[in-house]
Design a binder for these strands. Structure first.
Lengths: 117, 117
DNA sequence: ATTACGTTTCGATAAAAAACGAAATGAACA
DNA sequence: TGTTCATTTCGTTTTTTATCGAAACGTAAT
């Protein structure tokens, strides 16, 4: 795996609207699959796949939390390409309407209410 | 066209190995289709398509030059997302072996020799 | 004018990615 | 121990993307 492939992988992970929205949400707080599913309005399995793409690229981490799985921005990137991508991602799309709206929702929502059904 | 779509488009343009190589070559000097074709070892039409993806994303410009078309890094980006992406691209992959090799070849090659056949 | 040649467009094919529902997994809890 | 429930995996379908060769285009040179 050369650096070109790693970098390609990072950009591939970021080349999807849903995954960009996920990243920008995770910058605010860790989230579980069902919270993200509610906001993106996608099937659970689709969200799970998006998250595994982001994890594979090294941008996101997962951690068990009770019956949930918490996904969060990777705070200990394995290499420089990932850290600089994550830094870059902090500055983009901060004023985007979709991103602002997603963040508005996640800050006003309780996991226990949103997920159980 | 909202900012999220524009940003998605930029990342999509960068999510392909060949297009990353093209960008990193153009950072050294403007190139025509047939020069790039020789280095990437792809069909002319494929290279032309890659270049139009990069142009559509606003990362690259084209300009007629005699019988050739010169492609170059866009020096007057329409918006902030494009400029910051281009700035970011200046710092990544500088030590990648493939990129270094591509650049070695393009600096030692004459268009008139390479393209005519 | 006619030819030559770099580039683009078109049509087709193959490969990759996104999406879904259903089934499997696995940990928490009753 | 058995049930619940969030998540993952699997199989399938649809959409998108990468690739090519051939044909069309347009400009330079002959």
């Amino acid at each position: 795996m050369n650096t070109l492939s790693i970098q390609e992988n990072i950009f591939k992970a970021l080349s999807d609207k849903s995954r960009l929205r996920i990243i920008k949400m995770l910058q605010k707080k860790p989230l579980c699959v069902c919270e993200i599913k509610e906001i993106l309005q996608l099937a659970t399995s689709t969200v799970s796949n998006h998250l595994s793409v982001l994890c594979d690229a090294g941008l996101v981490n997962s951690e068990k939390d009770g019956k949930w799985m918490n996904y969060s921005i990777n705070t200990e990137p394995k290499n420089n390409m990932i850290s600089s991508a994550l830094l870059y991602l902090q500055f983009i799309l901060e004023d985007d309407e979709t991103i602002l709206n997603d963040r508005r929702i996640i800050s006003n929502v309780d996991r226990n209410v949103l997920c159980c059904k």
